[in-house]
């Protein structure tokens, strides 16, 4: 690890515009610094900023960027109204990491592309213009939507997939003032040269995540995640789904996919096609086809397209069946008994 200057920001005003890399929970940044992928000259510790509230606002919630992932997953308001968010959080990382990781840091975490994580491999995201080591390589964790020859990495967050489905908005403060961006559009898609523009300008910081009222979808929302082992593994593909069903017909629908692109992939065409339809496997199958429209393998990962369709169908089925009173023992898992939905 490179030597760095360390400074702690006590207030948001001190953090905004500060030069250096922001340190919150540290679970991703310190790891990347240890392996030489990140080498900031200066760390600005924002872990003590007073952004730790989860407050009800306008029927929804406003979540401080320093709320820990475990705190967010346990929050009674989240469990009652946004259960797919809790399920997504609990399906990610380990209990120890969730106790340290922050909400803002989860959004800002780097891709787990193994070529990005290997300083000896070419990587346009880490070292613009050097090429993409993942092309023609091991691409199980790589994109099938929205990728270019410049970069085929995926965003690894589970939390962001649920947030995108729930129409969450990222609140940002910076030297030029405050702005808001939809979670589903926050992470840039790659361009022909590489990862695309950074989601935050220099000195900008995520302060909150805002969630609108889910209304009748509150108790019909699930997260489903396929991974190589049932716990403590990143998604190969995942899906967050939320539905409102009246008299057997779908009146509101949300669907977002994880593990398939450089951002959580919101499936608006599929959502539109669900409206007014009966909540049946046929309807969900058609929606899943639309959700993966335009998908193409970025390597030997064509199977991910079929898997993502199936995971989307399962998430919609589970959402239609209703969220269980208590989240299952194995959150978001496909491999469990009836108790697991």
């Amino acid at each position: 690890m490179n030597r760095f200057e360390y400074e702690r920001a006590g207030t948001l005003a001190e953090a905004i515009g500060a030069e250096g890399a922001f340190l919150a929970g540290g679970t991703n940044l310190l790891d990347l610094m240890k392996i030489g992928v990140q080498a900031p000259a200066r760390l600005v510790d924002i872990s003590r900023l007073p952004l730790t509230e989860i407050e009800p606002v306008e029927g929804g919630l406003r979540i401080g960027a320093m709320v820990r992932n475990s705190t967010l997953a346990r929050d009674p308001q989240v469990l009652a109204k946004y259960p797919a968010l809790a399920e997504a959080l609990l399906s990610g990382a380990s209990a120890q990491l969730r106790n340290a990781a922050s909400t803002g840091g989860n959004v800002m975490q780097a891709t787990r592309c193994s070529y990005y994580q290997d300083p000896l491999s070419p990587c346009n995201r880490r070292n613009p213009g050097s090429g993409c080591g993942a092309l023609g390589g091991e691409t199980r964790n790589h994109a099938v939507l929205g990728w270019t020859e410049g970069c085929i990495a995926t965003h690894p967050s589970d939390m962001c997939v649920a947030l995108a489905a729930y129409d969450a908005v990222v609140e940002i403060s910076g030297p030029e003032g405050a702005r808001s961006v939809a979670m589903a559009e926050f992470h840039p898609l790659p361009d022909a040269q590489g990862a695309g523009d950074a989601p935050l300008a220099a000195g900008e910081i995520i302060t909150h995540i805002r969630l609108p009222d889910p209304g009748a979808m509150a108790r019909h929302a699930r997260y489903v995640k396929l991974r190589e082992r049932t716990s403590f593994a990143f998604a190969i593909v995942s899906a967050a789904a939320a539905l409102a069903v009246e008299d057997g017909r779908i009146t509101q629908a949300r669907l977002a996919l994880g593990g398939v692109a450089a951002r959580p992939w919101r499936c608006r065409t599929a959502e539109a096609a669900l409206l007014g339809q009966p909540a049946t496997i046929e309807t969900f199958t058609r929606a899943a086809e639309l959700a993966l429209e335009g998908a193409s393998p970025s390597g030997a990962n064509e199977a991910k397209i079929r898997l993502a369709r199936k995971i989307a169908i399962r998430a919609l089925e589970r959402a239609a069946a209703g969220t269980p009173e208590r989240l299952p023992a194995l959150p978001a898992s496909l491999f469990a008994g009836d108790d697991n939905g």
Binding site: R8, L23, G26, L30, S70, A100
Partner: peptide, 12 residues
């Protein structure tokens, strides 16, 4: 709270 001490910067 249980955490990984290896990813905790001591000064933080």
């Amino acid at each position: 709270q249980r955490m990984n001490a290896c990813l905790a910067l001591a000064l933080s």
